[in-house]
């Protein structure tokens, strides 16, 4: 199915947020997530379903002022 990850249309087979992270190379990385503009805590990623057209944001620590 097609979903959008950080603004890029992406084809994935995974159906949970955790599996999407594994499939797209974020496994083990220090990241935080939101799905369709709503924060999804790390503890809920394994059970959070992902469906066609979902918009996922994956962020990491970065420089800031």
């Amino acid at each position: 199915m097609k979903i959008t990850i950080n603004g890029t249309l992406t084809e994935v087979a995974a159906t949970t947020l955790n599996d999407v992270l594994e499939e797209t190379g974020y496994g083990g990385a220090k990241v935080a997530t939101a799905v369709n503009e709503a924060f999804v805590p790390a503890t809920l990623r394994a059970t959070h379903p992902i469906t066609e057209g979902d918009r996922i944001e994956i962020v990491a620590p970065r420089q800031g002022g």
Partner: peptide, 22 residues
Amino acid sequence: ATVSVRREAGGEQAGQDFWRLV
């Protein structure tokens, strides 16, 4: 130190490297 959160590309390590730095 002030920091932010920004998009991380899959497989990219920029955020992970920055985390170790701070």
